[in-house]
Design a protein around this nucleic acid. Structure first.
Length: 230
DNA sequence: GCGACAG
DNA sequence: ATCTTGTCGC
């Protein structure tokens, strides 16, 4: 068996090229691995903050022990905005700086959890899938709203879930992480199954709606943006 | 043609 | 995403 080196990131010249790149890379997504067992190893939250006025983008990666949820490493990267926000093309805006942050870590990231979606995407190749293909790491996507997809409200208890649907096709899950709180939306990115992706997400969201990994990465990139922009 | 649209 | 601290309410 031959392992192909991961493709390098390319910034498209326009939206049409961006969609073409996604259609091409989509074939490299691996969906038949169960992924790391929940509660073991390391999990890395990734998030990005912007200052559109100054064209600055900051990415943060925070590594947690999956069992204790203690932070074991963190890194940030400051870059320049190279692509506008276009629904469906979010990855091109975030990935260059996110890759830099991940490469600055001193440990293997393990399972990566990012804002946004993986399979739940108009071309089935959202940020989480894209990041997975470029790094070779298992990645899951966790979003705060259903994007263009539909769902029925999951049951009221923590851990209840319902399918996230594009027509008849299941592209992810609406997962309730806290009672009396809106669900979050989990989809598979690369090298992990949906059951495991939800199990990891639930463990990481013991106390709040969003996974602890995302909350820490969010706080870190925001703080770094304030400092970089001041 | 119009509106909706992850972050 | 971002403007933005404490505050109202379940």
């Amino acid at each position: 068996m031959t392992m192909q080196p991961p493709p390098a990131h390319e910034t498209p010249a326009d939206e049409a090229e961006g969609r073409a790149i996604q259609d091409r890379l989509r074939g490299l997504v691996v969906l038949d691995e169960p992924g790391p067992a929940p509660g073991t190893g390391l999990v890395t939250g990734v998030d990005v903050a912007y200052d559109d006025e100054k064209d600055v983008v900051v990415a943060a990666a925070v590594v947690l022990d999956a069992e204790t949820l203690e932070t074991v490493d963190e890194a940030t990267a400051v870059g320049t905005i190279t692509f506008p926000y276009v629904p469906g093309l979010l990855a091109f805006r975030e990935i260059p700086t996110v890759l830099e942050a991940l490469e600055s870590l001193t440990v293997d990231p393990g399972l990566v959890i990012c804002d946004g979606y993986g399979l739940a995407h108009p071309r089935r190749f959202g940020l989480a899938s894209h990041l997975g293909v470029l790094t070779g790491l298992p990645v899951i996507g966790v979003g705060k709203n259903p994007f263009t997809f539909s769902y029925e409200a999951p049951g009221p208890r923590r851990g209840d879930f319902s399918p996230l649907l594009d027509g008849d096709e299941v592209v992810g899950r609406a997962l309730r992480t806290q009672e009396n709180t809106n669900p979050i939306f989990v989809s598979v990115g690369h090298r992990i199954g949906l059951d495991n992706a939800c199990a990891h997400t639930l463990r990481l969201a013991r106390r709040f709606r969003q996974p602890e990994s995302t909350r820490r990465a969010d706080a870190l990139c925001r703080q770094t943006l304030r400092e970089a922009t001041a």
